[in-house]
């Protein structure tokens, strides 16, 4: 096993990753979801949510025009709302990185690119590395890779570990987000194990899903991953970011996620350096809630940009 992370003293045996109390997780999450969030906190939280979004388009039918439009949206979420933050990043396919990079010049919005034969990850390693290098050379600030779920489920943890480490090396300065695709990992025990493999192998972020598989970022899965990050931080002193992606389309759900982050990892993680939402339609819902709070009138999608 190779390891990029020089600070780590030893790598644990991933066969003995702690198991997860599923019932306990569900109860904890249910309690978080029934919590009421007061108006003022909600307003602050929603602005924070906007600033944590990775505005995403990952379709076979993506065109340069679509990407440019999304980049415009990333910079101008809703001009009718003064003081509206920008999103954290846009997330596109490697072929669209240079276009997005060009559109976002000087805006502070980062460009993230998926790679490693997204979304299936079913390609030889040299192709995955080339895919990653192409995205980085095109200007990607962040790389969202997928793990080889087939190898993971077959028990080849070393394969998965080495692959992540190799991609991390290919990333250079770009930050690496590792997508576990939790919808295909089946159990929470597997989610915890995959999280640890990713973190020890050099991930800067761990991310729930590609958005192509259901279920995606459930609260349960996110909670397990947050706890894995917490334990890893305690053990090694290294901070890892978290990115739930897929299925978070309402501000209510996003706020519950923030609440969960605050209560597991603390305020330090409540910035877009350590926490992101992968979403395409979340931004508009949050904007509509913000406008509702401002004007007192319920809003209509007619007056917001198209996702």
């Amino acid at each position: 096993m190779s390891n990029q992370n020089k600070k780590l003293k030893s790598i644990p045996d991933f066969r003995f990753t702690p198991t997860i109390d599923k019932v306990g997780v569900e109860e904890r999450v249910a309690r978080i979801q029934t919590r009421s969030i007061k108006d003022e906190a909600k307003l602050q939280g929603m602005k924070m949510v906007l600033n944590m979004i990775d505005l995403t388009t990952l379709e076979g039918k993506d065109t340069p025009g679509k990407v440019k439009q999304m980049c415009y949206k990333a910079r101008h979420l809703h001009d009718a709302y003064p003081g509206c933050p920008t999103v954290a990043a846009v997330c596109v396919y490697p072929s669209m990185v240079s276009i997005a990079k060009n559109e976002l010049k000087g805006s502070g919005v980062k460009v993230a690119s998926v790679s490693t034969a997204f979304p299936s990850g079913q390609a030889p390693r040299n192709i995955k590395i080339d895919d990653t290098k192409f995205a980085v050379d095109s200007g990607a600030d962040e790389i969202d890779m997928v793990i080889s779920r087939g190898e993971f489920l077959a028990g080849n943890y070393n394969f998965v570990f080495d692959e992540i480490a190799a991609i991390k090396e290919a990333c250079g300065k770009a930050r690496l987000k590792v997508i576990l695709e939790t919808g295909e990992l089946v159990t929470l025990d597997n989610v915890r194990r995959a999280s640890e493999i990713a973190m020890y192998a050099g991930a800067d972020f761990i991310k729930t899903s590609t958005g192509k598989i259901q279920p995606a970022a459930t609260m349960q899965v996110t909670y397990v991953m947050l706890m894995a990050i917490k334990d890893f931080y305690r053990k090694t002193g290294i901070k890892i970011g978290m990115k739930p992606a897929g299925g978070i389309s309402t501000s209510k759900l996003a706020l519950h996620n923030l609440l969960m982050v605050k209560e597991t990892l603390g305020d330090e993680w409540l910035t877009n350096e350590w926490f992101r939402f992968g979403a395409s339609s979340l931004a508009n819902d949050v904007l509509m809630q913000l406008m509702k709070a401002k004007t007192g009138a319920y809003q209509s999608a007619d007056y917001f940009s198209i996702d």
Binding site: G296, A297, Y298, Q299, S300, A301, D302, Y303
Partner: peptide, 8 residues
């Protein structure tokens, strides 16, 4: 009032 002001 809600009927009147709802933008949708």
């Amino acid at each position: 009032e809600q009927f009147a002001t709802h933008m949708d």
